[in-house]
């Protein structure tokens, strides 16, 4: 029973991380329709920048995270400006940006490796261990859950209350209609790339604190984000949060019965079942 509780808590904590990744990735995907695989490299880059700031300048967690956010936003917006935007202007069919993003990802991933070196880089942010009955968790776990809640709350306010937030929702709903009613879709695209990248940097800094930064951390991150979006339902914030937590909890509870080396397959089984039974995801805004 204690083990079960511990796994449940672990799953919840991992789930908040997946939800965060899914929110950032899904914001870009559902608004612009771009499957931004290089989101993984932006995330990796952010983790390395946070590591660099923390180890070279001795910055604490939050300032390092702030630096990582700035770096990620710059790189994310650059991805859109230099690659996706020109493809959009050329009216490339939807799979073309996806293929291009695979190329961009492999390029950025290896640039990251050349700049920051391969091997795990870790930063020593202050961290403590807490116990709640038989369950233990650490500072980074609390940070992960808290930042997930904070990001979601801020995003909800932004989407509902501000002009650009509502423009994002409109574009998610129907990009052509959004254009017709006079929404500047180019500007909105820049905003979602900036926001999505910023959110990835939050997740990246906390992963750095938990496991360290490494060259290949981005691929699995973007992949879990993508899976959370698909499981939750494209274009639904509630959906991607539910999808992220579902993945984290199922993956963690799976360890109860299944040995650890299969852990990452568990998430994909969830994906398969979901696509077979409910391809529109848990929550869907698709009206067709």
């Amino acid at each position: 029973m204690d083990l079960f509780l511990q796994l449940l808590v672990n799953g919840f904590i991992n789930g908040s991380n997946y939800a965060l990744l899914g929110i950032g990735f899904g914001l870009i995907f559902s608004t612009t329709g771009i499957v931004h695989f290089a989101y993984g490299s932006v995330y990796t880059f952010a983790a390395y920048v946070a590591w660099f700031l923390a180890t070279s300048f001795g910055l604490a967690l939050l300032p390092s995270m702030a630096g990582a956010i700035v770096a990620a936003v710059l790189l994310g917006v650059a991805c859109y400006t230099l690659l996706y935007r020109p493809l959009e202007l050329r009216r490339a069919p939807p799979l073309i940006p996806l293929i291009a993003s695979l190329g961009l990802n492999i390029m950025l991933e290896n640039l990251n490796a050349i700049i920051f070196g391969s091997g795990v880089r870790s930063a020593n942010f202050a961290s403590e261990v807490y116990f709640a009955g038989p369950v233990f968790f650490t500072s980074v776990h609390i940070w992960q859950v808290v930042s997930c809640i904070a990001v979601v709350a801020a995003l909800v306010v932004f989407l509902r209350k501000t002009r650009y937030g509502r423009a994002i929702l409109a574009m998610t709903d129907d990009p052509n209609m959004a254009r017709v009613v006079g929404i500047d879709t180019k500007k909105v695209s820049y905003i979602v790339f900036a926001l999505g990248s910023a959110i990835s940097a939050v997740a990246a800094t906390l992963t750095l604190m938990k496991d360290g930064a490494s060259t290949h951390m981005g691929f699995i991150a973007v992949f879990m984000g993508f899976v959370a979006v698909i499981v939750g339902g494209v274009g639904s914030l509630r959906g991607v949060i539910a999808g992220g937590f579902l993945l984290g909890i199922v993956e963690s509870l799976g360890l109860w019965k299944i040995s650890t080396e299969w852990q990452s397959s568990i998430a994909f089984i969830v994906l398969f079942i979901m696509i077979m039974l409910r391809p529109q995801g848990l929550f869907s805004i698709a009206r067709r």
Partner: peptide, 9 residues
């Protein structure tokens, strides 16, 4: 690998 990515893009 960077070369492959560049060519693709």
């Amino acid at each position: 690998l960077i070369l492959y990515g560049l060519v693709l893009m």
